[in-house]
Write a protein that binds this DNA or RNA. Structure first.
Length: 146
DNA sequence: ATTCTGACTTGCT
DNA sequence: AAGCAAGCCAGAA
């Protein structure tokens, strides 16, 4: 039995729903967790995501989000005290406000223990049907990458 | 089968 | 820091 597109969407949405307030994940991170598709696929899912989802906690690898979403997102970041870069000191000397960007180094969600297990379970739910799915046990190491 | 498209990434200026 | 080109992945036309 082949996995359906719908399954992939559910998996992505489940993960997004698990991200704690004040923390974030990049599109690529989610693709890695699922070991399916890539950043663009995750982005595609998010573009169709229904409201009610903490979409602002999923952003690009550079800590930004597509233009239109920035305003709404920043509002949330402030509310959730998400670590940002800029705002004050790092602003350009030219006087340009420079849009705030999430500080990935500090804000990236690093799932541990039970959370990581839960994510693994979500991933496994995708390959479900015995298809020679070789599982890597030491995947956790990937999360230690800086 | 082929081409287009996009809430993406990386590497190089 | 900002812009650009290529690479990448999968669904849609």
């Amino acid at each position: 039995m082949r996995e359906t597109v719908r399954d992939y969407e559910e998996a992505v949405l489940d993960i997004v729903a698990m991200i704690p307030a004040g923390k974030v994940l990049t599109y690529g991170d989610i693709a890695e967790i699922l070991e399916r598709g890539g950043p663009r696929q995750v982005g595609a899912v998010m573009s169709r995501a229904s409201s009610g989802l903490p979409w602002w906690r999923v952003l690009r690898a550079d800590g930004k989000l597509p233009g239109e979403l920035v305003a709404a997102a920043v509002e949330q970041y402030v509310k959730e005290a998400t670590p940002l870069r800029s705002g004050g000191r790092t602003a350009a000397p030219t006087g340009e406000p420079s849009e705030p960007r999430v500080d990935l180094r500090r804000a990236r969600w690093n799932p541990a223990g039970a959370e990581q297990v839960a994510l693994q379970r979500i991933r496994e739910s995708l390959g479900g049907t015995a298809e020679g799915v070789s599982i890597r046990m030491s995947e956790a190491d990937d999360w230690l990458r800086s």
